[in-house]
Amino acid sequence: MKKRWYDDLWIASLLYLVLGFFNILFAWLGLLCFFIPLLIAAIGGNKGYCNRYCGRGQLFGLLGGRFGLSRRRDIPRWMKSKWFRYGFLIFFFAMFFQMLWNTYLVFAGAQDLKQVVTLLWTFRLPWHWAYHGTLLHPGVAQFAFGFYSVMLTSTVLGLLTMVLFKPRSWCVYCPMGTMTQLICKAKHPNTRS
C-alpha cells in the first residue's frame, strides 16, 4: 500500500513525550490531539483522526506490531462493552476537570505551582527539571504539568493493553475515540450499527 505523509505521525507522538521531559511547556501542544479529532468529527462527521492521523495509535501499532511487543490476544469482552467505554470516558472527563480545577486554583493564586507529573491519577513523579520559570503565569505551567500527566497516563495504559492484548487495543477504550464516535452517531442518526 502507498505510504502517505500521515503514516509517520507516530514520530510526533513520540517527540511530544520526549519534549515534555525537557520542557513541560511543550505539553500544551497536546491540545492538538484533543481539538483536531473533535473538529474533524463535528465538521466532517467522520473519524478521520483515528483512521488516518492518530500518531498515538500508529506508535502502538509499530511497537506492538513490527516490534512484536504484544501478545496479540483478544481483548476481554467487557473492555469493548459500551458501559466500560462510556464509563472510562466519564472517568477520564472527571479527572480532566479536576486537573483544570487545579490549574484554575494556581491561576487564582489559591494554590502554588506543583512541579509534578501525576501518573495513573495516583503516583506523583518529580518533574521539576522540565520547568525553569518563565515570563508566563505559573498557571500556564500548572496546566502543562496536568496535561502532560493526562498524556503520559494514557500512554502507559495504552502500552499496558498493547502488551496484554492487540497492539492498538488502546483504540477500543480511548476516550477521544469514544467521544468522536458519539459525535458521529449524533451527526448520522440514520446510520445504524
Partner: peptide, 12 residues
C-alpha cells in the same frame, strides 16, 4: 458493528 469502535485499523 455494534461493538466496532471505528478506529480504522482494518482499513489500513
Amino acid at each position: 458493528t455494534s461493538v466496532c469502535v471505528a478506529c480504522g485499523c482494518c482499513v489500513k
